[in-house]
Design a protein around this nucleic acid. Structure first.
Length: 572
RNA sequence: GAUUCCGUAGCUCAGCUGGUAGAGCAAUACACUUUUAAUGUAUGGGUCCUGGGUUCGAGCCCCAGCGGGAUCACCA
């Protein structure tokens, strides 16, 4: 591995510490009795507490002024200034611990534990006067240094999304405000969990590896089980398993789980995402809308302390009741077209008139869905229930109690995006089988997202499932809304990305094999010969000459190898 | 998948019409006992994403590729 200057220096400092008998990676624990935030919140100049504090964290900046220094220590709660004075750290003649260890061998990013007492500086900043410190970890890579001035302007921000996602740990260190997103995300989940548990519903886990990928219209990831010698799919939904549990006699079950869909990636789609699904027996979708309103209200209150909050320039209001529009009403409202009374041909003509891309395989239901997506969705800013969908688009949903051709389904839209999908669950096993058969026909026509017949699920329905309502809520999208983010990558710790390109690099022993002494390997690498093959293609004269330059540059004491030797590396 | 923009020091970014590659921070050295984006002085640091091409000469122009962002299409 090629190291840059700062990485080499930090490795040298690590060695020096070890040489002085200081273990830069001590095994024993460092007990703390306070945190940066606790001092910030509770310490006052006249308080009797905080006379003997111990805390630990990462050094984020130094302000050294001769025999006294200030530094900033960042722990999980925040930052606190620490103050070190040479003669406090080193009361005796030997000033090494301050002059050498602290001033020379510590860097930004190192983790230390300190002991001391709190005080307030002349400029009024609460600080810890350090009486002793202990190195807990020597950091070997330089952190980006992000600075914020007194007006709150950020200088040299670590903002490149690629770097931030690929090295999320660095992002979380230097942009600690981004940790808040994930705390809020956790809050969303814990708030829901508390609510569901209070209802007496059971948190369950169902298979992620499924022999049949059911429960949604999507393309799955396929894998293979060696012992069973059979294909398995990463789940695209857990719906069919949760319903089996309702058949089994649980009145309410819920699962927070990862779903996997082998489809496009962009700022609202990641190949794996988290969904909450829950199913409650003896309920219908009307009831579910009420519960959904309660859930959204609760999470908004938990995260913001208020049911309304800002998303970009928009103020969203999560207090119910939310607007309810049937998909037919919604389309009429935003286009003036009544899709209910229109024929398939009329709709197709309208779509062409609006410049939409459609093809002849699309039936009326699909056209309605397309029109909705094109003309209505983006207008649904405040939480809005769109209800009563055409039966063809909803193979797992119970037929509407009074509207023929429709099903009892709703989707909840916020900021033009679907965040929840729910229905009165279809529990007539004969009807369900027919719906699956319709899906099979779609699959035969080449629809890669069509659902697959699940005989075991049908068998469970034949034993009898009580009338049930179920819902799926996208946790990532909900978190985006609640944290004012327009990109799903921001609310996932580790969004999926292409792997980093690995630079092909020969090992030192590979160079030695062709006769290159190990001391010259860094020079050759610095010159760009990362592989033996590339070295073999080089011009021996040029390599010999450049080696002279590199010898000086890298301060290699060894005598320059003979030209014949260099030639032998390349030609033999 | 399509369109478009971007890739330069450890980090954030300049770089003119094609003519020896720059700044701030970080690093190194020195000074400094209450600073706070600490300061002052000095020093080191580059595969200009990769590979071709044009040219006397390419960070810059052309082609291809890799990676990322944004917009659009499909999906939650």
């Amino acid at each position: 591995m090629l190291l840059n200057e700062q990485e080499i220096l930090r490795r040298e400092k690590r060695e020096k510490l070890m040489g002085m008998g200081i273990d830069p990676y001590p095994a024993e624990m460092f007990d703390i009795n306070t945190s940066a935030k606790e001092i910030e919140d509770k310490y006052t100049s006249d308080s009797d507490d905080f006379k003997n504090v111990r805390l630990a964290g990462r050094l984020m900046s130094f302000r050294i002024m001769g025999s006294a220094s200030f530094a900033e220590l960042q722990d999980s709660s925040g930052r606190i200034q620490i103050y070190l004075r040479r003669d406090d750290i080193c009361p005796d003649e030997d000033k090494t611990l301050y002059n050498t260890v602290f001033k020379k061998l510590l860097d930004i990013g190192d983790i230390i534990g300190v002991e001391g007492y709190c005080f307030t500086t002349q400029t009024g900043e609460k600080s810890v006067h350090v009486t002793s410190f202990k190195i807990l970890n020597k950091s070997l890579k330089a952190l980006p240094v992000v600075k914020t001035d007194e007006d709150g302007n950020i200088h040299d921000g670590f903002t490149d999304p690629e770097m931030r996602y690929r090295r999320r740990y660095v992002d979380l260190i230097v942009n600690p405000q981004n940790r808040e997103i994930f705390k809020k995300r956790a809050k969303v989940i814990s708030t829901m969990r508390t609510f569901f548990d209070a209802q007496g519903w059971l948190e369950v886990e169902t298979p992620i590896l499924q022999p049949i990928h059911g429960g949604a219209a999507a393309r799955p990831f396929k894998t293979h089980h060696n012992t069973l010698d059979m294909p398995l799919y990463m789940r695209i939904a857990n719906e069919l398993y949760l319903k089996r549990l309702i058949v089994g006699g649980f009145d309410g079950v819920y699962e927070f789980g990862k779903m996997f869909r082998n489809e496009g990636m962009d700022r609202t789609h990641n190949p794996e995402f988290t969904a909450l699904e829950f199913y409650v027996a003896y309920k219908d979708y009307e009831w579910m809308m009420g519960i959904t309103e309660q859930i959204f209200e609760k999470v908004a209150l938990a995260v913001h302390g208020d049911t309304s909050f800002k998303f970009g320039d928009t103020t969203l209001n999560f207090s119910g009741p939310f607007t309810r529009l049937s998909i037919i009403e919604a389309i009429e409202q935003y286009t003036g077209v009544n899709v209910d009374t229109s024929t398939e041909d009329e709709l197709r003509a309208k779509c062409k008139e609006w410049g939409m891309e459609i093809d002849n395989s699309m039936g009326k239901a699909k056209l309605i869905d397309e029109i909705f997506g094109e003309k209505v969705e983006a207008n649904l800013i405040q939480p809005t229930f769109i209800i009563d969908y055409p039966v063809e688009m909803s193979p797992l949903t119970k037929k509407h109690r009074s509207k023929p051709g429709l099903v009892e389904r709703f989707e909840l839209f916020v900021m033009g995006k679907e965040v929840a999908n729910a229905y009165s669950e279809l529990n007539d096993p004969i009807d369900q089988r027919e719906r699956f058969e319709d899906q099979l026909k779609l699959a035969e026509r080449g629809d890669e997202e069509a659902m697959v017949m699940d005989e075991d699920f049908l068998r469970s329905l034949e034993y009898g499932m009580p009338p049930t309502s179920g819902i799926g809520i996208g946790i990532d999208r909900l978190t985006m809304l609640l944290t004012d983010n327009t990109s799903i990558q921001e609310v996932l710790f580790f969004p999926q990305m292409r792997p980093e390109k690995k630079v092909e690099m020969a090992k030192v022993s590979d160079y030695e094999e062709i006769g290159v002494p190990a001391v010259w390997v860094p020079a050759l690498q610095k010159m760009g010969f990362m592989t033996i093959a590339s070295l073999k293609e080089a011009n021996a004269n040029k390599v010999f000459n450049d080696l002279g330059g590199m010898r000086k540059k890298l301060k290699i004491d060894e005598k320059l190898p003979a030209k014949e030797l260099v030639e032998s590396w390349i030609n033999d």
